[in-house]
Computed example of a mutant assay.
Amino acid sequence: MFETRSGEKLLETDPETMPLDGRVVFIGRIASPWTTRKTCPKNMRAARETGQPAHLVIDPLYRDGLLGLERASHVIILSWLHHAPRQLIVQKPRHAVEPKGVFSLRSPARPNPIGLHVARLVAVDIDIGRIDLDAIDVLDGTPVIDIKPYFSSTDAFAEATMAGRDESPRSDEQ
């Protein structure tokens, strides 16, 4: 269990203890230079600023799924943030004025701790299941749920905003 801050709220039941209703499988792991939450960048912008590359190692069973991925300049990676608490439903970020529901935050603490990362694809080696990335903002060994090509024509919205944002953009750190 972890300590909550003023204004935070926990779910009555920890999602980790609930019956399974889906069969998510991990297709590989992320190899990153980050081994502690303290040193791990808080978002992809901060990760890129470190100049530290990362890579994914895809399990043999799923490597054929990488065919054609090398054509993408960027990829979307969905990860399972396995160190994140799952019972926190209202959070009070240190830098925020008011508590916020988890679905209005990019924090890893949420009922299903799924991380979303958009990274520049550097290289793909299907034979060894390795995907090289420009950077990543998660701990070494983080499980990978899925990989998708990023399409600027459909995935980017220049007009997107977050009204009244009183905090810096956060990604899915652990």
Rank of each mutant, 00 (worst) to 15 (best):
E3T: 15
E3K: 15
E3I: 14
E12D: 15
D14W: 00
D14M: 03
T17N: 11
P19Q: 05
P19T: 08
L20I: 08
R23V: 04
R23F: 02
V25K: 11
F26G: 15
F26E: 14
I27L: 13
I27S: 09
I30N: 04
S32E: 04
T35Y: 07
T35H: 12
T36L: 11
T36H: 11
R37S: 15
P41I: 14
K42H: 07
R45N: 01
A47P: 07
A47Q: 10
E49D: 13
T50Y: 05
Q52C: 14
Q52M: 13
P53A: 12
A54D: 03
A54L: 06
A54I: 03
L56H: 04
L56D: 05
L56A: 14
L56W: 01
I58H: 06
I58W: 06
I58C: 12
I58Q: 08
I58G: 10
D59F: 15
P60C: 14
P60E: 15
L61Q: 15
D64L: 09
D64N: 12
G65R: 02
L67D: 13
L67P: 00
E70I: 07
H74T: 00
H74Y: 04
I77C: 04
L78R: 01
L78F: 14
S79Y: 01
W80C: 12
L81I: 08
H83Q: 14
H83S: 15
A84P: 01
R86I: 02
R86G: 07
L88H: 08
I89Q: 05
Q91S: 14
Q91E: 10
R94D: 12
A96Q: 00
E98M: 03
G101T: 06
F103M: 11
F103S: 05
L105M: 06
L105Y: 00
A109S: 15
N112R: 06
P113Q: 08
I114E: 07
I114Y: 00
G115F: 06
L116D: 01
L116F: 13
V118M: 08
V118P: 06
L121G: 03
V122Q: 08
A123C: 09
V124P: 03
D125M: 04
D125V: 11
I126R: 11
R130N: 03
I131K: 04
L133M: 10
L133H: 06
A135Y: 01
I136Q: 02
I136F: 08
L139W: 05
G141E: 08
T142L: 09
T142I: 07
P143W: 07
I145F: 10
D146L: 06
D146G: 11
Y150A: 10
S152A: 14
S152R: 04
D155S: 06
D155M: 02
A158E: 09
E159Y: 00
A160K: 10
G164I: 01
S168K: 07
S171L: 02
Q174V: 12
Q174K: 00
